[in-house]
Design a protein around this nucleic acid. Structure first.
Length: 152
DNA sequence: GCCAACGTTGGC
DNA sequence: GCCAACGTTGGC
């Protein structure tokens, strides 16, 4: 079992939105970064743990827990001409972007990024590195246990 | 709203 | 295949 941190803008899909969705499942659409796409396509497995992170908002930080609920499949929003995630270069016979389904498990207290940065045990978290812009990053087992055990 | 840092694009 | 310009991310 592996662990991931997945960013979402709460204006688009907050932990409350994800918990309110049918079967608490959210298709993680709209990722348009190759590295994050590859993470969903290759190493992610059903059942992996997910830190549900609110980004680009008034209170950025960890907002809940989730799990990977499906393998990867083509992201349908890449073919939607009218949607904001349309990719004219992606062909149906060779889709460029994929998604996985994420099942929201629970809302937690919000752990602000400043608090995460204050813990030495989390100093190596990829998402805390200056300039990091990946929307999906791996979380080590030790980091996962520290966060879920001590901070939530 | 600012802006640093990074990914992507495209001319050469 | 280099690299400058550009666009985007995302904390502050």
């Amino acid at each position: 079992m592996q662990f991931w941190l997945m960013k979402t803008e709460p204006d688009e899909c907050s932990i409350d939105d994800a918990l309110a969705a049918p079967r608490r499942i959210t298709p993680w659409s709209g990722v348009r970064n190759y590295q994050s796409r590859n993470t969903m396509r290759d190493p992610m497995r059903v059942g992996d743990g997910v830190l549900f992170y609110h980004s680009n908002c008034a209170e950025p930080g960890i907002a809940g827990l989730a799990e990977v609920a499906s393998g990867s499949r083509p992201d349908p929003t890449q073919f939607d001409r009218k949607g904001g995630y349309y990719d004219p270069q992606s062909k149906r016979e060779a889709p460029r972007w994929v998604l996985v389904d994420i099942r929201a498990l629970k809302k937690t207290r919000l752990v602000p990024i400043a608090e995460l940065k204050a813990h030495k045990a989390l100093a190596n978290m990829l998402t805390l590195r200056p300039g990091n812009r990946l929307s999906i990053t791996p979380v080590s087992g030790a980091e996962w246990r520290y966060i879920t055990g001590k901070l939530l």
